[in-house]
Design a protein around this nucleic acid. Structure first.
Lengths: 215, 215
DNA sequence: CATACCCCCAGTGTATACACAGAGGAGGCG
DNA sequence: CGCCTCCTCTGTGTATACACTGGGGGTATG
């Protein structure tokens, strides 16, 4: 394992997890001491964080962790919706029906016992299969760049069990669309899912601005 | 100007221009001597080239300039079409009519005197205005990442004057769609333009595989 | 007392030195 | 004569030293 990779992985992890909250200034010497590597790999890790959009470099002030605001969610989905729609459409044209039929059944099962962690793990596997089916490195690269930010968005929204169950059902529909080899169905199911996801997050945004109801 | 930026700019320029053809192995020491900077900024430049997709790093062989094949064009357009369509649609909703009306007139004028360089410069300005109108950093970042590769594609296709004139007309239609504030018109015009661009390139691909006719 | 200038320092940008790993060639052994 | 092994060399990965720039604070002067 290269030290620069280790540094990047550690920093990305901490940013996504939240232990390095937005606004944190990352000094090269500070992080190199903390991570136990030299400044050189830390510099490289910083560059990659900036390239990924997780940090910005202020000319003489160091690199600071970027903020992921609720307004960014809209911007993110403006890119995500067309890209994932296209991916689903292409996967329907190129993917193998068996793989996605199996995935659909897994989502069906998951629908009954909603669990956040296993749900996201299954969704990640679906994304992976779609990427593989599409076979477009450019698209895969962009989507993976997007998913980093979506992981941060996830921290903004609480996962209620009913939403997880619906999400699983929507994922199942996407898989069914792909498995049936119908690009338009796959795309429509994807658009539906993403609009609903966005709607759910937006709804929570409303609730966040209001005072919290008695729990 | 930082040395690392200078190194990256120089290398990117040379790769896009073709003086560093695909397959070239870039050694750190070699490039640092040639560019007159140390290995450290060269390393950073290499990282950025890899992130941009212009080079890949072979474990112990150095970083080599990637190839841009004609098959890649299809993959590229599979991403480009949905992204630019979305951008045009959003620009129609958010952009100012004056800016794009003016651009449409410029394209109209350019249609009469087709010139490759000025055409691409004008098209770049349009892209810039769309980016500004959309105001979505995620979308802009992805599009700019794509445009680097599209610049390489441009070298694969010869610009015939009649194609340039048609392209100008298609750009004009996109601008008119945006200026009229009609997202669907803007998107349709964009899709039309991109399908035609792709068709033109594919057509040239056919001709490239055939023996060249007498000039 | 306020403001402007200067000095100091923190931190990054760059250069260079050192370590390590893999590949290729040459030599020895079977 | 062929194959295996070891050595060397090239090139990357990492560490550290040095230079420069921008900012902040302190002091002096108006």
């Amino acid at each position: 394992m290269r030290a620069s990779d280790a540094a990047y992985t550690a920093l990305q992890e901490e940013i996504l997890e939240g232990s390095l909250p937005p606004g944190t200034v990352l000094g090269e010497v500070e992080q190199s001491q903390r991570l136990g590597v030299s400044r050189t790999p830390v510099r490289e890790a910083f560059s990659r964080l900036v390239a990924a959009g997780l940090a910005v470099q202020h000319p003489r002030r160091g690199t600071v962790v970027t903020d992921i605001s609720l307004e960014d969610v809209d911007r993110l989905f403006e890119v995500r919706i067309p890209l994932e729609s296209q991916a689903a459409s292409l996967a329907a044209q190129r993917g193998s029906a068996e793989v996605f039929t199996a995935l659909a059944e897994e989502f069906d099962a998951a629908q009954l016992a909603p669990d956040a962690e296993s749900h996201y793990r299954l969704a990640a596997r679906m994304d992976q299969e779609i990427d593989a089916a599409v076979g477009n490195p450019y698209l895969s690269t962009m989507l993976s760049g997007l998913r980093v930010h979506l992981a941060r968005v996830r921290r903004l929204a609480k996962d209620r069990p009913d939403r997880l169950a619906r999400s699983a059902a929507e994922h199942r529909d996407i898989c069914l669309g792909i498995a049936s080899g119908d690009p338009q169905m796959a795309e429509a199911a994807t658009r539906l899912h993403l609009r609903r996801s966005l709607g759910y997050i937006s709804q929570q945004r409303q609730q966040l601005s209001e005072p919290e109801p008695a729990t």
